[in-house]
Design a protein around this nucleic acid. Sequence first.
DNA 1: ACCTGAACACCGTTCAAGT
DNA 2: ACCTGAACACCGTTCAAGT
Lengths: 198, 198
Amino acid sequence: MARRSDHTREEIRALAIKAGVALLSESGFAKFSTREVARRIGYTVGTLYNVFGGYDDIVLHINAVTLDDLSRAMQARKGKREGAAGIRQLALSYLAFAREHYFRWSALFEHNLPQGTPLPDWYAVKIQELFRQVEEMLLPLVGGKPKQAAEAARVLWASIHGIYALGLSGKLDTVGAGSVEGMVTSLIDHYLEGLTKA
Amino acid sequence: MARRSDHTREEIRALAIKAGVALLSESGFAKFSTREVARRIGYTVGTLYNVFGGYDDIVLHINAVTLDDLSRAMQARKGKREGAAGIRQLALSYLAFAREHYFRWSALFEHNLPQGTPLPDWYAVKIQELFRQVEEMLLPLVGGKPKQAAEAARVLWASIHGIYALGLSGKLDTVGAGSVEGMVTSLIDHYLEGLTKA
DNA sequence: ACCTGAACACCGTTCAAGT
DNA sequence: ACCTGAACACCGTTCAAGT
């Protein structure tokens, strides 16, 4: 057995990531497994462990594809809006992506590295790219101060994320409260009002 | 074997929940298992499945204890502050609890029921109790309108949750940005400013 | 009636041994 | 050198069979 060399190391990685994205999309993170990924690409689990660092490494690479797709989706829909309207537009793009690719979006947060392990740099860069888009849109609103835009982008984006995360997973207790879209709009408008008038 | 009747059905449930809370506190959600819970209480997995509905039911009961403890912690620290200062106080209590009981707090969100399954009512009530405390504090700020207080409580609390969730799990890309405490204070102050002046 | 033990169908991870 | 197969130590879930 062995020594097939049907694919290079890089090709196997690419196949696995692609199959992993598909598996995650179909079944969700709770049913995701490296063994199923291996099955789908016609290799053994052993091969996956030769080519990746392990379970967490594989999940990170799959989640990285999601981050790239999310960045692109937000970029594409940006349009020509500016200021608060531009931020609302970005937030709605984020929500549209989360709804359309719920399992993949959810896996970004259901997966956590062992406590104390920092995210690898190549992955952190992809998170930065998301925040960068928000910062860019915020910059004119805070008088062109990059540091203030960076902090406001993080506050705002983490907040929007929290509303969608609790809302989409049914933990927001939305009985009698508005839609998540409405809540996010309320957040953006009031926060920006407070921020820019201060 | 069998027919020990050392404990009633309710006693076994209580033992399992207590052991589950301890296991979760020590090892985190990724290493949590019903088999280990069974081992710790000296019963078989089979017994656990007689007495609970299954894995999700067991996790929900363990998370419910966390929600109760969290509610109590927020209640206890409420003090006599009102308005924005009261909200800040509640948020800092929430953060203190999340830091001190990180694994238990994190499990509230790492665990998700199968898509489309709503949370059981007895569990949703515990979430309501948390929001109720925030609503109560917000009510004077929105001119005593309960509906507005309910929505503002959800917007604010989900936002605060998002900042802590991304911050504590290292996904906030906090290079150059402030502490999570600082971000939450920024959120509360600016949001309330926009909300109350509107 | 209550509980066990064993079975079933899975996991992540490692690594000697084949080609 | 590359990949497999099997092993190890686990999972969640079910249920016939003991007491």
